[in-house]
Design a protein around this nucleic acid. Structure first.
Lengths: 343, 343
DNA sequence: CCGTACGATGGGAGCGCTCCCAAAAATGAT
DNA sequence: ATCATTTTTGGGAGCGCTCCCATCGTACGG
């Protein structure tokens, strides 16, 4: 009693679809993968069989045979999740998800915190367990991008590490965003415009500072180094920077902070110093996060198109994987100044 | 000239590891999968070969042969991402990631927005492309949990749909959280304590209301229906509810809002009505989100152990997958009242 | 010293698919 | 109608692994 070749409970296989459609396995495969070398008639038959059987290709088999994975990894440095928590993370994810929706790429989420995890990730990548990698918030000294470059693994990062980035990247226009913010302060009649910078080993932070400088000097307010206070993107850092500014230049009448969180810190200090916002000192942040909307007064801020960055990153990565890109695209997306009550 | 069996550039395979260790493929497999039926000597030899060759198992082959995927999906309803954006999403992810770190389970992120995506997801699941599912913020009418139950697919959800949940679930103690908040208000001498509820088709929102009721009546302040204002978790909803409350019961001296965002809406209305916080009206929120910390005055709020919920969900799911659970665990994690300036 | 038993081991079969080659069918040119 | 092409098609080989069974080796009891 030879066991029947019919699969009892299991999911249907390609072979079964082919049998049902009265064609060979190879042909069925062609139809399913959209190869053009199939007659219309055959195609219809196979498609009907697929529908009737509710066939869904087995990903593992596909991956094994085709030597690819149909999966990409979104790599998030663990320490950052906290900072970027705000909308950032979920917006990126939403964008990426949207771009992947009509693909059958899977999105793998990879948090890397400890060195052990880093190593494991490197191993993962080396073992080619994903077709491509999305890198979020990469630091200057991060070895990962170089590893990817070396492995020839398609990758796209958000932001970049320097002006000349070997990997594909998608960034927001930090320079123009900062400039627009400062221009806005100038147009409101402010004259002693300070800035609180982010960690300057982050390229974006440097660009924001550049934008500030450009706007200030274009207005003939000369870049006054006393008005530039370095900080580290944290609330406490922003507060400290504000204290320094107030001590150095009590005449300051506007502050452009390179992040909303730092602006929140600055606000606190300004309050305690009895300066009214925006009457005495105008304040602008960067990121347009929840913090900005809920601050009192509501914070004017530079908004980055985070979700679109996510979408774009995914799109570019798919192109890289498909080998469609001659060279690594360096995409810069425009920012937008959201004017609220603080300026 | 028979092509050499040596793989030129590629990743090493099990077979190669076995050859190098001077054992058979089966034995090598046993070592790698931690089977006890291997002699210590052999084990060492294989482990050495693995290290030397930098062997990493091919996931696809494993999945294909073993009929499993070593992957779990985190399913996030798209419309929610926006609401839950705050820390919620990233905290859950961090928790899940942490619990998965020493496993070699992969985390698949699946956003489901459109019905088309829902269907595709159902197909995915039916095709057994993952070993288990993590469900975040499920609505009362969501068909997904039932589908999973039907398929016998291991699943864990955050929160639950009703008191009797067939699926495994991990929730925070909404009841006790709300009760603690209201008790705190009572201990501060408040007497006309109102509540702004979330959408009551969400189980958690109902539990928060129950907790409020319990605390109020325990204090002999009788549940006064006029002090209960239904809303929908949005800022505008919270504002509207607050207006209603003020109109109905101008004597209100405390408000417990079932979310920070609604509390933010309420705060706005209270301000406009000239009520000082906390002097005239004390205010408490729920979630302990960024909004709470940055509100002015800083908002007292009930904090949920989100990251731990993520960790627990993952842990429970792994157990479900391993078939270790007799019945579906219903885990409730404690909340904590974070007292700030608003109460 | 031999039979028994059991742990350790090797390797065949097969998971479901893609790749690719050779065969079959259709098309066109003469 | 014939032959050269081109298009379609079928199915073998093989991806790297797990499962499982037959075999081998060894320790032990009699």
């Amino acid at each position: 009693m030879t066991a029947a070749r019919v699969r009892s409970g299991g999911r249907p296989t390609l072979e079964e679809v082919a049998a049902r459609a009265g064609v060979g396995r190879g042909t069925a495969s062609r139809v399913i993968n959209g190869s053009p070398r199939v007659s219309a008639h055959t195609r219809e038959a196979v498609e009907a069989a697929v529908a009737e059987l509710g066939y869904v290709p087995n990903r593992a088999a596909r991956a094994l045979a085709g030597n690819r994975t149909d999966a990409i990894a979104l790599v998030v440095p663990e320490p950052e999740t906290r900072f970027f928590a705000e909308p950032y993370f979920s917006d990126i994810v939403r964008g990426v998800g949207a771009a992947l929706a009509d693909t059958d790429m899977q999105l793998l989420l990879t948090l890397v915190g400890s060195d052990r995890e880093r190593r494991r990730l490197a191993q993962y990548l080396t073992a080619h367990r994903v077709d491509g990698v999305l890198l979020v918030s990469v630091h200057a000294g991060d070895p990962l991008p170089d590893l990817l470059e070396q492995l020839g693994m398609p990758a796209v990062m958000s932001g970049r590490r320097s002006a000349s980035e070997p990997l594909a990247s998608v960034d927001s226009d930090n320079f123009e965003g900062a400039r627009a913010a400062v221009d806005h302060l100038i147009s409101r009649g402010r004259r002693s415009i300070a800035t609180i910078t982010g960690r300057l080993d982050v390229y974006g932070a440097r660009r924001r500072l550049d934008g500030y400088r450009k706007a200030v000097s274009a207005a003939g307010l000369g870049p006054d180094e006393q008005l530039i206070a370095p900080a580290d993107f944290t609330e406490e850092g922003g507060a400290q920077a504000m204290r320094d500014l107030l001590a150095r230049r009590p005449d300051v009448d506007a502050v452009f902070a390179a992040s909303d969180v730092m602006a929140a810190g600055a606000r606190q200090v300004l309050r305690e110093a009895g300066r009214r916002i925006p009457d005495d000192v105008a304040l602008i942040g960067f990121d347009d996060s929840a913090v900005a909307r809920h601050m009192d007064p509501a914070l004017t801020s530079v908004r980055q198109p985070i979700e679109e960055m996510g979408r774009t990153m995914a799109r570019v990565l798919l192109q890289e994987i498909a080998g469609e890109n001659q060279e690594r695209p360096q995409i810069v997306l425009p920012t937008e100044l959201i004017v609220r009550d603080s300026s």
